[in-house]
């Protein structure tokens, strides 16, 4: 019975994907992804309310004057490790019955060079990409410029990718 159900969901998924490629209706895209918007909303509220979007909190972190950000990131990592461990141990599936797969991260020198460059930017803007979106939403309109420059930086990286050491 379960087997049959699985087959049906698989067929359904396949069917959905096929129809998507043919008509790619905006309504379908919206209903499939609205749940990620909802998760994002809660996430954004957390960013603001725990003051992770604050330039001052990031300054405190880099100056070692406050435990706050270390506590946030540390707790998140511990919760994340436990969650991923449980998911793997119990072989949990997604709500649509898909097997959960997490791509391993491959090492490249970019993680060092790029990581340092992002660190420079993080200390200046007081924001990683996530908080940029929350800062704009919170009403810091000039952060739109920060964001546009981040998009530009991404584009320039794409342009130079093959010439950079990796």
């Amino acid at each position: 019975m379960t087997q049959k159900n699985n087959n049906t969901t698989e067929n359904l998924d396949e069917f959905k994907e096929n129809t998507e490629s043919v008509i790619y209706s905006s309504e379908n895209v919206f209903s499939k992804n609205i749940k990620f918007l909802v998760v994002g909303i809660f996430f954004g509220i957390t960013f603001v309310k725990a003051e992770i979007i604050s330039w001052f909190r990031i300054q405190e972190m880099f100056r070692f004057d406050s435990f706050h950000m270390y506590g946030v990131i540390g707790t998140a990592v511990v919760v994340g490790i436990i969650s991923v461990f449980i998911i793997k141990k119990l072989k949990l599936k997604t709500i649509t019955g898909e097997e959960i797969k997490i791509e391993p991260k491959k090492f490249s020198k970019g993680q060092i060079y790029g990581g340092l460059l992002f660190g420079f930017g993080w200390a200046l803007t007081g924001a990683c990409p996530g908080p940029l979106f929350a800062q704009m939403g919170y009403g810091f309109s000039v952060v739109v410029i920060t964001f546009l420059f981040a998009v530009l930086g991404t584009w320039v990286y794409g342009y130079l990718q093959n010439k950079l050491p990796h």
Partner: peptide
């Protein structure tokens, strides 16, 4: 702060293949 910083955030995170969420968490 605004422009150079923003540029470095975009360029650096993509060069590193992720940011605080993708890598650190």
């Amino acid at each position: 702060f605004i422009c150079v910083g923003g540029f470095l955030v975009g360029f650096g995170t993509r060069y590193a293949g992720g940011c605080t969420s993708g890598h650190a968490i």
